[in-house]
Nucleic acid binder design. Structure first.
Length: 456
RNA sequence: GUCCCCAUCGUCUAGAGGUCCAGGACGUCGCCCUCUCACGGCGGCAACACGAGUUCGAAUCUCGUUGGGGACGCCA
C-alpha cells in the first residue's frame, strides 16, 4: 500500500454512530493517514424507510467528536441511484443479469424447503434462463446477477488471509428491487469503484457479502479493493455488543464522561496492537498503524480499561478544557466558583477518572457549605488553626501546609487530626482533594469562613 | 441446518519452532508513599481449550474434537 490508498467508512444512517462503527472508521482513517492517502465518508441511505436526517447528523457529530475527519464531502448513496440502476440494466442487456419474477411467497417456500433438506437457503435461479414472456401478469421483476455456479470465489483478506467459498454456495443476488431501487450489494460496489476506494476495513459480519461484492466487481471487470475483515466487538459477556450492554453509541460514552481520545485509544487496542504499548497518542497511532498488526479473534469491550485510560487522559488534559467539559454537564456557574474549580483542577483531575466523577469531586467547590458545630476537642483545634491562619498572607497551598505542619510539630497535635478536622469543617466530606489545596482554591475569606463557621 | 471465521492470565493482548516452567496493560490482592481519596512505587495471584501428529525441540506447523462468534433478506 502507498499514498494512493483510498479508504472509506460507509455507515447506514439508521441510528446513532455505533461504537463498533467508530472503530471501523478509526481504522480506515488511521490506515489512510498512515500512508498519506484518502479517507472518504459515504452515507448508505438507500433504505429510505429506515434512514433519517437525524441519524446522518448523529453519525457526523460522532465522528467529529472522535476527531475522525473525512476527506471531501460525504457521498450520499441515494443521490447515485440512477447510475446504479442504469448499470444493472446494462448487465441485463449484456446477458449478465436477468429479470426474476418470483414472488416473496415463492422465495419463502424455497428457503423452507432448502432448510428442510439440510441445504443452505438460497434462490434456485429459476428465472435465470426463463423467457420473461412467461412472467405472471402485472408482476414487477427484480434484477438478479447471473452469478457463476461453478468454481470458487477467492478472497485475499488482509486480516483473515485467503478464504475460498464455492460458488455453489452463493445464489443469484438481487441487484435492483422490484420497486426499481438498487440494493446494497450493487450500490456498494459501484460507489466504491466510482469513488476510487481501493482498501476496505470493515466488520467481519460483512465477510460473506464480500464474496458477492467480488462477483459484481468481476462482472463489471473492475479492479477489486483490498479487504480486511476485523472481528466484531463483543460485550463483557461475550455476545455481540447490544443495547443491553448500555454503551452502544459513541454519544453514550460522551454522556458517561469519557474523553474522545480515551475512547479512540481503547478502540484502537481492540483488535490491534503494537507490542506492549497501551497508551498511544493519535500521532503514534498514525505512525504505527498498518493492517499487519490487526488481530483476527473477537474481543470484548472492557469498560474498566476504558476508565483507566480515561483517567490517564484526564490527568493529561488542559484544565480549562476540563472545566468546559464539566460546565457542559452541569450548566454555567458564577465566575467565582469557576475560578475555584480552575484553581483546584490539578487536584481534581488527578482523582477523577471521568467527567462525571470530576463533577462529583468538584461539588466541594460548587456547593455552599457550612459545617455544624464540632465536638469540643475539634472545636479547640479549629479555633487554634483559625487563629493561626488569620495571620497568614501567602494563601498558597504550599505555604498553608508548611504553617500548619509547623504548628502541628510545635504543639504536638497530630497533623492527621488537624487535616481531618479541617476537611470536615471545609466540606463535611470524607473524601476530598487535599485540604490545603482546597483552602487555596476557596481563598482566604471563604476558607476562614468555613473553618470558623461551626465555632459560634 | 448450511457455509465461514476464531481459540494465550477474569479482560485487552505480546509471541511469527529453541532466547517462554510465556511478557505487558486493565482488574484483583498485599505492601510503601500519605491529611482522606486518588496519583505514584514495589510485589503476589493468574493463561498457551483438549487430543493426536510433524520435529532433536511446538504457545508457535498439520489434523481432529470441543467451545465461541458471524453470515445465510426485494436490510445495510
Amino acid at each position: 500500500m502507498n499514498s494512493d490508498i483510498v479508504t472509506r467508512f460507509a455507515p447506514s444512517p439508521t441510528g446513532f454512530l455505533h461504537i463498533g462503527g467508530a472503530r471501523t472508521a478509526l481504522f480506515n482513517w488511521l490506515l489512510a493517514r498512515h500512508y498519506g492517502g484518502k479517507f472518504l465518508l459515504r452515507i448508505e441511505d438507500t433504505d429510505r424507510e429506515r434512514s433519517t436526517a437525524e441519524a446522518v447528523e448523529a453519525i457526523l457529530e460522532g465522528l467529529q467528536w472522535l476527531d475522525i475527519c473525512w476527506d471531501g464531502d460525504p457521498v450520499f448513496q441515494s443521490s447515485r441511484l440512477r447510475r446504479h440502476v442504469e448499470l444493472a440494466e446494462n448487465l441485463v442487456k449484456e446477458g449478465k443479469a436477468y429479470y426474476c419474477y418470483c414472488s416473496l411467497e415463492e422465495l419463502e417456500e424455497m428457503r423452507r424447503e432448502a432448510k428442510a433438506k439440510g441445504l443452505s437457503p438460497k434462490y434456485d435461479g429459476r428465472w435465470r434462463d426463463r423467457d420473461p414472456a412467461e412472467a405472471p401478469p402485472g408482476a414487477k421483476p427484480v434484477i438478479r446477477l447471473k452469478a457463476p455456479s461453478e468454481g470458487n470465489t477467492v478472497l485475499h483478506d488482509v486480516v483473515q488471509g485467503e478464504i475460498i467459498v464455492s460458488n455453489g454456495q452463493l445464489d443469484d443476488m438481487i441487484l435492483v428491487r422490484s420497486d426499481g431501487t438498487p440494493t446494497f450489494m450493487l450500490s456498494v460496489v459501484v460507489d466504491d469503484h466510482d469513488m476510487g476506494v481501493n482498501c476496505v476495513i470493515r466488520g467481519d459480519d460483512h465477510l460473506t457479502n464480500t464474496f458477492r461484492h467480488i462477483q459484481i466487481f468481476n462482472v463489471f471487470g473492475w479492479s477489486i479493493p483490498e479487504y480486511g475483515h476485523i472481528p466484531l466487538i463483543h460485550g463483557p459477556d461475550g455476545v455481540k455488543l447490544s443495547k443491553r450492554h448500555g454503551a452502544l453509541s459513541v454519544g453514550a460514552y460522551r454522556d458517561m464522561g469519557y474523553l474522545p481520545e480515551a475512547v479512540c485509544n481503547c478502540l484502537l487496542r481492540l483488535g490491534w496492537s503494537h507490542g506492549d504499548d497501551e497508551v498511544i497518542s493519535r500521532e503514534q497511532a498514525t505512525e504505527w498503524f498498518t493492517t499487519e498488526n490487526l488481530g483476527k479473534s473477537p474481543s470484548r469491550m472492557d469498560f474498566a480499561k476504558l476508565k483507566s485510560l480515561n483517567g490517564h487522559y484526564m490527568r493529561a488534559a488542559d484544565n480549562k478544557r476540563l472545566l468546559d467539559e464539566l460546565l457542559r454537564k452541569i450548566g454555567d456557574l458564577p465566575e467565582e466558583k469557576k475560578q475555584r474549580i480552575l484553581t483546584g483542577m490539578n487536584g481534581l483531575k488527578q482523582r477523577a477518572k471521568t467527567i462525571l466523577e470530576l463533577r462529583d469531586m468538584a461539588a466541594v467547590y460548587i456547593d455552599d457549605f457550612t459545617a455544624p458545630a464540632p465536638d469540643a476537642e475539634t472545636a479547640e483545634i479549629l479555633r487554634k488553626i483559625s487563629f493561626l491562619l488569620s495571620s497568614v498572607d501567602d494563601w498558597s497551598e504550599k505555604n498553608l501546609e508548611r504553617r500548619v505542619k509547623a504548628f502541628s510539630e510545635e504543639k504536638g497535635v497530630s497533623f492527621g487530626k488537624i487535616a481531618g478536622s479541617l476537611r470536615n469543617a471545609l466540606t463535611g466530606k470524607k473524601i476530598t482533594p487535599g485540604v490545603f489545596e482546597m483552602l487555596e482554591s476557596f481563598g482566604k475569606v471563604e476558607g476562614m469562613r468555613r473553618i470558623s463557621a461551626g465555632l459560634l
